[in-house]
Computed example of a mutant assay.
Amino acid sequence: MKLRIFTEPQQGASYETLLSVAKATEDLGFDAFFRSDHFLKMGDVSGEPGPTDAWVTLGALARETSRIRLGTLMTAATFRLPGPLAIAVAQVDRMSGGRVDFGVGTGWFDAEHTAYGIPFPSLGERFERLEEQLEIITGLWRTPPGETYDFEGRHYRLADSPALPKPAQAGGPPVLIGGVGAKRTPRLAAAYADEYNVPFHRPGDTAAAFERVRTACREAGRTKPMVYSAAQIVCVGRDEAEIARRAGAIGREVPELRENGLTGTPGEVLEKIGTFAELGAETLYLQVLDLNDLGHLELIAAEVLAKL
């Protein structure tokens, strides 16, 4: 089981804060540092100093780290055109020496689109655009050097693209697709994803979502292995007082966190990680909301990661 640290900078984090968390992630032995791709806070937080762009941040972190993988859960297809997005991700992959994973989704938070003047089409159109973006981005990355790439779709058209730059990873960074949609998401995952992620669901719902994707892979005749993963909020303490303090720092109640995330003593969290492993999850993304509490990461590394 791989443990990856997942951050939500739109809730309030400077680049300097993200850098400190990314360096701790690397120093403590975690597998990867991931971040959300959002431009607006959620809930009753200040959100200050304001949003940071996901791929600008990851490009900088690529030069400040040397081992951990870097990625997004999930880049919104509504935010960027597919050609420039393929260029940005490929550049960050080269800057990191081939350590990028590319998570991408439809985009869902309509308020952030309104706040920053980004068009927010219907869900059906967003899925159409996501599928075209997946085809274009992977197609650009996989076009042989010296050849050009063309695409004619309903929403995007590319002609005589040199399909440059190429990522450091042959064929491009691994593609992550997530969500628990019953039909379109499993089909897209089977067609394009290297990894399928279920975010913030209980084990039973996660198992059902995994099975839908396994079925879609069989129906599509896919033989390439799929990595299955889950994202869970994390709140670990040595005792009840420490658990309660960390829950309070993020405005959550301990019983709710225990029910819906990886919360409790290290032993409790290890047991729940084992439950996800039994479902077939190979990777867990630990959503860390208090980015100033590096002692939390130290505890998880020493008492959970070290014992897996």
Rank of each mutant, 00 (worst) to 15 (best):
R238P: 08
V236P: 12
E259W: 00
G237Q: 12
A247F: 02
P255S: 05
G267F: 01
G248Q: 07
L262R: 01
T263C: 14
A244Q: 10
T263K: 00
G237Y: 12
G261N: 02
E242M: 14
A244K: 09
N260L: 10
A249Q: 09
A249S: 03
T265R: 00
E240K: 04
A249Y: 05
V236Q: 09
N260M: 01
G267A: 12
C235I: 08
V254F: 07
A247D: 07
A244E: 13
R258A: 06
G237R: 10
A244V: 14
A247K: 00
E268C: 03
G237W: 13
I243E: 07
R246W: 13
G248K: 01
P266Y: 02
G248S: 13
R246G: 03
L262P: 03
R252A: 14
E259M: 04
E268N: 02
T265A: 01
V254Y: 10
E240G: 15
G251V: 02
V254G: 03
N260K: 15
V236G: 11
R238Q: 15
E253N: 05
E242A: 14
E240Q: 07
T263E: 01
E240D: 15
G267Y: 04
E240N: 07
E253K: 08
E259F: 06
R245H: 10
E256W: 12
E268T: 12
E259T: 03
E240A: 15
I250A: 07
A249W: 00
R238T: 14
G251C: 11
V254H: 00
R245G: 11
T265N: 02
T265Y: 00
I243F: 08
R252I: 01
V236I: 13
G251I: 02
E256N: 14
E242S: 11
A247L: 11
G261Q: 09
L262I: 09
C235S: 10
I250C: 05
G267W: 00
P255R: 11
R258D: 10
R238E: 15
T263D: 04
G251Q: 09
E240I: 06
A247W: 13
E242N: 04
E240V: 10
I243D: 05
A249V: 06
P255L: 09
R246L: 08
A244W: 08
G264L: 02
L257M: 10
G261I: 01
E268V: 12
I243Y: 11
E259D: 12
D239R: 13
T265D: 01
G251T: 08
G237C: 12
G264H: 01
A241H: 13
E253P: 03
L257N: 09
V254I: 14
V236W: 07
G261Y: 00
E256D: 05
P266M: 02
T265V: 01
E253V: 11
A241Y: 14
T263V: 12
V254Q: 13
A247G: 05
R245K: 08
R246K: 15
P266R: 04
L257G: 00
